[in-house]
């Protein structure tokens, strides 16, 4: 018999329990019916068990989303935890689906489960990757759009972890602005 280190047997707990969601755009159904909970997890090993098992985001058909949110928060503006918040938005061009998208999404997931936002963890709700032929989008969702300093720190950390060049700015949009926008994009409340 082999002696196995306890480290190989004990799963590593996460600070938060996280839920992975999948959205597939079936126009014959209501939006909410297209949003499905895949599973929730609260250990590092269970995260990898899930991530290693599901399709890479770049291989999803256009119109699909993955979302990772704290357990109990639904990946929609209307959720009580999201309605006063917003998202840092990273817009990808068509080339980046093959070169950057999976890396960006994995890095974002690692930020979430690893608690990369330190004391600002309570401001974090989750993240979503939207696969769209007109341009893929990665969003990091926060709880309260009025918390300027916290929001800016979160944006800077995201940009740093994704290794987005300094000269490329990313914007933060409040969900309330996105929900009521007249044009195709909401205004940026903050930029880094």
């Amino acid at each position: 018999q082999q002696i196995v280190s306890p480290d190989m047997l004990i799963k590593h707990p996460l600070q938060n329990r996280w839920a992975m969601w999948f959205f597939k755009n079936d126009k014959s159904k209501e939006w909410t019916a297209n949003l499905k909970l895949i599973t929730a997890f609260d250990t590092v090993e269970d995260f990898w068990g899930l991530y290693n098992h599901i399709q890479k985001a770049s291989r999803l058909p256009s119109g699909c989303d993955y979302s990772l949110f704290k357990d109990g928060i639904q990946p929609m503006w209307e959720d009580a935890s999201n309605k006063n918040g917003g998202r840092w938005l990273v817009n990808l061009n068509k080339n980046q689906r093959q070169t950057e998208l999976d890396n960006f999404w994995l890095e974002t997931l690692l930020c979430l489960i690893g608690e990369a936002f330190d004391d600002l963890t309570d401001d974090i709700c989750g993240a979503t990757i939207n696969i769209r032929n007109k341009g893929d989008k990665l969003g990091l969702w926060t709880r309260d759009a009025r918390r300027g300093d916290a929001t800016l720190q979160i944006g800077k950390k995201l940009k740093e972890r994704l290794k987005i060049p300094q000269k490329i700015g990313i914007g933060f949009q409040a969900h309330s602005d996105t929900a009521t926008k007249a044009g195709s994009t909401a205004r940026d409340r903050y930029r880094v």
Partner: peptide, 18 residues
């Protein structure tokens, strides 16, 4: 209180955990 966080490198090491 205490908070559990993981460095990126550690999370990546766990990827192939049985």
């Amino acid at each position: 209180g205490t908070r559990i966080f993981y460095e990126r490198a550690f999370l990546m090491q766990c990827r192939e955990s049985p």
